[in-house]
């Protein structure tokens, strides 16, 4: 009996949270006629949250009835994104969508989430995987490393099983026709620490995360899995230049629920794209080693579809699909 009561209580709490949303009018001319909330599916203070807050801060002049950031964490981002996808399609709830939107559904832990539930507004920033080894590692180029991987079982650290950097390593291995021994850690920092201690052979986290150790001379980056060289590090080659056509990275952007009027979507895009060019935001992104990479809604929508197909194939191949 008690168990039933508790279950009922928990259920009502969950549903209560879903239905308790702010109200706003769905009209493009008067938008934003009420307070707008930006859903961040990750914890306050984390990288994604801080970028969202910096952009919202730059755009808040366009939202006279107030715009606030709300963190809805859980499920590796699935909780917050599902909440945002099921909000009223009137622009009153904007969601920060991340690459997990196109990876979680394929690992079977997306709780019904799918990328087409969102109308993409714009992509804001991107970060690509950097193949990083210890500074005293015998491998000086990506080719040396991958050649060695043909005979030796390379231990490649990532920030979590099924996380984007795991997929990046897997994507590289697939393209190069080798096998890695993927070692998952709880986040990027423990993986970097383990590499520094010489317990693993390489890591595939983003360049921003290893930047300080590379500058300190403890680590070296063999290549980035980016479509073109990163402007902050023009001397690091891309894998594509070296003959391995693979570009995998994370991105962050904004979306509203499907069926939101086109005029409202355009209005939000105009507000946010201007905010992304503001000196304060540019300064913030430069200070935190983040790369601004703006795509408009149409381009972003194409990227979502392409990435979704690519990650589906990779995840199926890795056997990461659960249940």
């Amino acid at each position: 009996m008690k168990k039933i009561l508790v279950t009922l209580l928990l259920l009502s709490l969950t549903f209560g949270a879903v239905f308790a949303q702010g109200v706003g009018e769905a009209s493009a001319d008067t938008y934003p006629s009420g307070p707008v909330s930006v859903i961040v599916p990750y914890a306050a203070g984390g990288g994604t949250d801080l970028i969202a807050r910096a952009l919202v801060d730059a755009a808040k002049g366009n939202f006279p009835k107030n715009i606030t950031v709300e963190n809805r964490t859980g499920g590796g981002g699935a909780v917050g994104m599902s909440y945002g996808a099921n909000a009223k399609p009137d622009g009153s709830v904007i969601t920060m969508i991340t690459v997990e939107l196109v990876t979680l559904p394929h690992t079977g832990t997306g709780a019904g989430l799918y990328y087409d539930q969102f109308e993409p507004i714009m992509m804001l920033n991107s970060a690509y995987s950097a193949i990083t080894v210890k500074a005293d590692s015998p491998y000086n180029t990506l080719n040396e490393f991958l050649d060695a991987a043909k005979t030796k079982n390379m231990r490649v650290g990532n920030s979590g099983v099924g996380a984007i950097w795991h997929l990046a390593a897997a994507g590289l291995a697939k393209t190069a026709g080798v096998n890695f021994n993927h070692i998952p850690f709880d986040g990027a920092a423990p993986a970097i620490t383990s590499l520094l201690g010489g317990h693993i052979d390489a890591i595939t986290v983003s360049y921003a995360e290893v930047d300080s150790q590379v500058r300190a001379g403890n680590l070296k980056v063999l290549a980035v899995l980016a479509p073109e060289r990163i402007s902050a590090t023009p001397d690091i080659p891309t894998a594509k230049e070296l003959g391995y056509d693979v570009a995998i990275g994370t991105w962050r952007g904004f979306g509203v629920p499907k069926n939101t009027p086109k005029a409202i979507v355009d209005k939000i895009y105009s507000f946010f794209s201007v905010a992304a060019q503001s000196p304060g935001f540019i300064q913030y992104m430069a200070n935190t080693n983040n790369i601004i990479d703006v795509l408009d809604g149409a381009e972003y929508g194409k990227k979502l579809a392409v990435d979704n197909a690519m990650f589906k194939a990779l995840i199926d191949e890795l056997g990461l699909k659960q249940q």
Binding site: G74, G75, G76, A78, V79, T107, L320, Q322
Partner: peptide, 15 residues
Amino acid sequence: TGYPRFVFNNINLLS
């Protein structure tokens, strides 16, 4: 392994 354990299809328990 990324396998969801004891979550009973509840999204709140996934993380």
